[in-house]
């Protein structure tokens, strides 16, 4: 069953200058379906719009156009109570765990407030028990050690666990995790990812994992799916093993060939993908057609004006006009490609 369906979603930010208004089209015709209970990865470099999309999914931003269906119902046409339910069901884990916790409040009250706000009938003792339960669920044991601490007294990994506990305490169906490990120490990253995977498997939580780090995608998502974003659109979407091992879109190919592999023999012998330019262009000056046109070796004159369409196969969607002409690419070289 599909928990979330996004269709033709567009987002335009308007920034007002002194006497002019500038429109920035940050998300273009996003189509995305998320199955109940899956982990899906949303991958892209800075400025590709992945965080904006995450904020739209969690309801922090309203899209300019397009529909979002949650459990089959359009969220725009819901009444207040249903909206509240949707809000509660879709939660957000932010990137910077220090900024996401109120610096002057103890962990206990940071956790108490949202539980109380959503369950007004609960007594204090019941909430206390819940707080302890969720802190221990995310591996902060014994919970009593952490309740009276301020955010700055915890390590980055512990704070990230507190955030996850806070999100769990609202009993969500879908969690959007925005770069949950990018701000914490390398040695602690894997354990946070493990926790997310565990929550997915044990509680059946659906997770949208937003990241710039392709290396972790396969670890987190496993057999699931991933979407690659570039300058506001999803350029490639499909099963992780297809997208990573046989990328089709020239941007995905370039991205995957750039990820370093912790093995000097493979790393130094893998095929290179050349680009016309290394810099990501400014999204404000992006052409209406394919955003990758100026950097793509296979681009022709028609690409910049191409009407964005999804092509390739049903399971593996690629947004590229010349999809048939792109030579295949495989990280492990030719021998494993057959």
């Amino acid at each position: 069953m599909k928990i979330l369906e996004i269709e033709k979603l567009n987002m335009v930010f308007t920034t007002r200058g002194l006497n002019s208004a500038e429109r920035v089209h940050v998300l273009r015709d996003i189509d995305l379906e998320i199955e109940q209970g899956e982990i899906m990865a949303l991958v892209g470099e800075s400025g590709c719009g992945k965080t904006t999309l995450g904020k739209i999914i969690t309801g922090l931003l309203d899209p300019t156009s397009g529909t979002i269906k949650f459990n089959g119902n359009d969220i725009a046409s819901r009444n207040k109570k249903q909206k509240r339910e949707y809000r509660k069901s879709v939660q957000f884990i932010q990137q910077d765990s220090y900024a996401a916790l109120n610096p002057v409040k103890k962990i206990y009250s940071s956790l108490y407030t949202p539980i109380k706000a959503n369950n007004r009938k609960l007594k204090r003792a019941q909430i206390d028990a819940l707080i302890v339960k969720y802190l221990e669920m995310v591996g902060l044991t014994p919970a009593s050690l952490f309740l009276e601490k301020f955010p700055h007294q915890l390590s980055g990994g512990q704070r990230q666990r507190v955030l996850i506990a806070r999100v769990l305490s609202l009993e969500p169906k879908l969690i959007v995790a925005d770069e949950p490990i990018s701000m914490i120490d390398v040695s602690l990253r894997l354990s946070i990812l493990q926790l997310l995977i565990e929550l997915n498997q044990k509680l059946g939580l659906t997770i949208v994992y937003i990241t710039h780090d392709l290396s972790t995608v396969k670890y987190v998502v496993g057999e699931g799916r991933m979407a690659v974003m570039y300058l506001g659109e999803i350029v490639e979407y499909g099963k992780v093993k297809d997208v990573i091992l046989q990328p089709v879109h020239p941007y995905t190919q370039a991205l995957i060939s750039s990820v370093s592999i912790p093995d000097p023999v493979i790393e130094r012998n893998k095929p290179m993908i050349r680009l016309k330019s290394m810099e990501i262009p400014d999204i404000r000056h992006r052409c209406e057609g394919c955003g990758f046109t100026d950097r793509c070796l296979y681009a022709d004159d028609a690409c910049a004006a191409w009407k964005l369409e999804n092509t390739y196969t049903e399971e593996h969607i690629v947004r590229c006009k010349n999809v048939q002409a792109i030579p295949p690419y495989a990280v492990l070289g030719e021998e494993k490609h057959e």
Binding site: L60, R87, Q94, D96, A99, T113, P114
Partner: peptide, 14 residues
Amino acid sequence: ERDFIQICSVMGVG
């Protein structure tokens, strides 16, 4: 605009 205030509305805090 800080994260910990923004997240409040997602968590349904009044």
